[in-house]
């Protein structure tokens, strides 16, 4: 089948950038979206043109490296799926697709569809470490975790940090990412000692990275490839507010 692509081309961070139109005439329905871009790039290289730069790594939907806006939806039209796991059978012959990079002040464009997501790394680093007893390996099940808490922590931990939530949010807010990371440790006994400091510190770092604020619209939840729920944002708000209102010094300062 034939796919018509409009792709954001930008040589580097300083370039102004523009949309460019490409046709990929021989798309196989079994190709993944990224394989379709590989075919386009082979074509461009053969014609001595600059291939389209896009991020990718595992191509298994678990690393969080890939992603771009497809017709205004982060990771494309299929819910709960990263771009690499989106297959061309979900498109029709002759479809016109607009591919754009994640747009946020906190995610500067490196080239074409590649953005710099180091802001996420700095937010994670601000969260710090958890206190654990080092030494010999602890007994299995020495710390008991209710099944429900373990499941919810695991659901939050499924966040792969792809940035789709930021890209889709009308406010370019990182709340879903931030809340998933805060909830994942906050739900487990091992995460309790630094639970409130962590929430305050990560929220402060995200604010410094100039992400927007949450207005409870839910576009992040709709596009999250790991289907993380808006509920984690309420949990983050709860941890943050409790730390600020009831904290006795260290926690409220972050």
């Amino acid at each position: 089948m034939k796919i018509i692509l409009h792709i954001w081309r930008q040589r580097n961070a300083d370039d102004k950038g523009r949309m460019a139109r490409y046709e990929v005439p021989n798309v196989n329905e079994h190709m993944s979206f990224l394989e379709m871009l590989d075919v386009l790039n082979e074509d461009l290289i053969a014609k001595d043109e600059e291939p389209v730069a896009f991020d990718h790594d595992c191509r298994e939907g678990i690393c969080g490296m890939c992603g771009s806006m497809v017709n205004g939806v982060a990771h494309g039209p299929k819910p709960g799926t990263t771009l690499c796991q989106l297959h061309m059978r979900f498109f029709k012959d002759g479809d016109e697709l607009y591919l754009e990079p994640w747009r946020a002040r906190a995610f500067p464009i490196v080239k074409d569809l590649v953005v710099d997501r180091s802001a996420f790394d700095r937010v994670m680093a601000a969260g710090g470490f958890i206190s654990v007893a080092t030494g010999s390996a602890p007994d299995g099940n020495a710390i008991l975790v209710p099944k429900e808490d373990a499941d919810r922590a695991m659901d939050a931990a499924a966040c792969i940090g792809c940035g789709a939530c930021v890209a889709m949010c009308p406010n370019a807010s990182a709340s879903l990412f931030l809340a998933a990371k805060i909830s994942h440790l906050g739900l487990l006994p091992q995460g309790q000692p630094e639970r409130h400091e962590r929430a305050v510190a990560m929220v402060a770092q995200a604010n410094q990275e100039l992400f927007g604020a949450c207005t409870n619209i839910g576009e992040c939840e709709a596009v999250c490839p790991k289907e993380i729920k808006l509920e984690v944002i309420a949990r983050m708000n709860h941890d943050f507010l409790l730390a600020k209102l009831a904290g006795r010094g260290a926690a409220e300062e972050g």
Partner: peptide, 14 residues
Amino acid sequence: AARPIGYVKKADLP
């Protein structure tokens, strides 16, 4: 300010 440059095409979900 968090998104100085908008999208050419943007869907509203939900």
